[in-house]
Structure formats: C-alpha cells, structure tokens
Computed example of a mutant assay.
Amino acid sequence: MTEDDRRRGRHETEEERADRMWGELIQEVRVAQTGVQILFGFLLTVVFYPKYGQLPDTDQHIYIVTVVLGACTTGALIGPVSLHRLVSGRRVKPRAVRLAARLTFLGLVLLLATMTSALLLILRVATHDTYVPWLVAAVVAWYLVCWFGLPLWARRRHTAGPENR
C-alpha cells in the first residue's frame, strides 16, 4: 500500500472517487439548499406586509441586503446541480466535483452572511436594545465554530501524521 493509498483510505480510481464524492456533495447541498430556500421564501414575503413601510431606512437597507444575499446563496447552492447537468457525460467529473465543491463552500459562506443579516434585522425589529450586535456576534461565532472551526480541527487532527498529534 502506498502512502497515497493510506491517505485516501480507499482503493478507487479517479472516476470512482469522483462518483463517490459527487454523491456526498449532493447530499450536503440538499441539506443546505432546503434551509436556504425556506429562508429566502420567507424573506420574499416580508416586503408585502404593512409594517415593512414603517421600518426605518436602516432596517429596510438591511432587508434589501439580506434578500440579495439570500438570492446569491441560492444561486451558489443550486449551481452544482446545473454544473452536473451541463457537463454530464463529458468525462470531466473529477474537475466538475472540485468546482461544485467550491461553489458549495461559497454557498456556505454566503449562507453565513445571509443568516447574520437576517438575524440582525429580526432582532433590530424585535428589540431596540444595544445588546443586539452582541447577540448577533455570538451567534455568528457559534456558526463559525460549528461550520468551519470543528471541521477544520477534525481535518487537521485526523490527517496529520503521528508526529503532529
């Protein structure tokens, strides 16, 4: 067994690996996509409520930014599906998987921004207290730990050689 085999942990061709990784990626995208679509759908309805017109300009601007971020997030998370459909059968799956993974990561970053913006807007409307930015910062820190910190820690810990443990 070569060092590369030990690192990969599987005996698979590049195409088999791309097929497996594609399946895993699509499952991950399904989870994120559902949440984004529900959030985006709710965001689209806010402007039609009478209270929207009574919001201060700052809150209306935050709303607009939130909707645009939600649209961008939706685009990034649906992108891998379109990519797969357009390149299917063209023998470029390994490259398509890498590109789709980048789109998905971008979608997660945009989702973080969308959730932050939506939370800021909701808490500003629900309460006018000065602790709102602190609450938002705490939730963003939690997202960063859950979405990026722990996965990066696990990747580093479990892919490092024995000399780094």
Score class of each variant (00 low, 15 high):
Phe105His: 06
Arg91Lys: 03
Pro94Phe: 12
Leu108Cys: 08
Leu83Phe: 04
Leu111Arg: 02
Val97Ile: 11
Ala96Lys: 05
Leu103Gln: 07
Gly107Met: 03
Leu111Pro: 01
Val87Cys: 09
Leu111Gln: 02
Val109Ala: 15
Arg91Gly: 07
Ser82Trp: 11
Ser117Asp: 10
Lys93Arg: 11
Leu103Lys: 12
Arg95Glu: 15
Met115Gln: 13
Leu111Phe: 10
Arg90Thr: 05
Ser82Thr: 03
Lys93Thr: 08
Val109Asp: 08
Arg85Gln: 08
Leu83Asn: 09
Ala118Trp: 09
Arg98Asp: 15
Pro94Lys: 07
Leu106Phe: 04
Leu103Phe: 14
His84Ala: 05
Val97Gly: 02
Gly89Phe: 05
Ser117Asn: 10
Thr116Ile: 13
Ala113Pro: 12
Arg85Lys: 02
Val92Gln: 11
Leu110Arg: 14
Leu99Thr: 05
Leu86Gln: 12
Val97Ala: 01
Val92Phe: 05
Leu108Val: 10
Phe105Trp: 04
Thr116Leu: 10
Leu106Ile: 09
Leu99Ala: 15
Ser82Arg: 00
Ser82Glu: 01
Ala118Val: 04
Ala113Arg: 14
Leu112Gln: 12
Thr104Lys: 01
Ala96Cys: 08
Gly89Ser: 03
Leu103Thr: 03
His84Ser: 01
Pro94Cys: 11
Arg90Asn: 03
Ala113Ser: 14
Thr114Met: 15
Thr104Gln: 07
Arg102Phe: 12
Leu86Lys: 07
Ser88Val: 00
Ala113Gln: 09
Arg95Gly: 06
Val81Met: 02
Arg102Lys: 12
Leu103Ala: 13
Val92Trp: 07
Leu112Thr: 14
Ser82Gln: 02
Arg98Gln: 15
Leu112Arg: 11
Thr116Cys: 13
Ser88His: 14
Leu106Met: 13
Leu99Phe: 02
Ala118Ser: 15
Ala96Asn: 04
Gly107Lys: 00
Ala100Gln: 14
Arg85Glu: 02
Arg91Pro: 02
Met115Cys: 08
Thr114Val: 08
Ala100Asn: 15
Ser82Phe: 10
Ser82Asn: 02
Thr104Cys: 03
Leu108His: 09
Leu103Tyr: 12
Lys93Gly: 01
Arg85Pro: 00
Val81His: 04
Ala101Gln: 11
Leu106Ser: 10
Pro94Gly: 09
Met115Thr: 04
Leu103Gly: 11
Leu83Trp: 02
Thr114Leu: 13
Lys93Pro: 00
Val97Asn: 08
Ala100Arg: 12
Leu110Cys: 10
Val87Pro: 01
Arg90His: 03
Gly89Thr: 06
Gly89Glu: 05
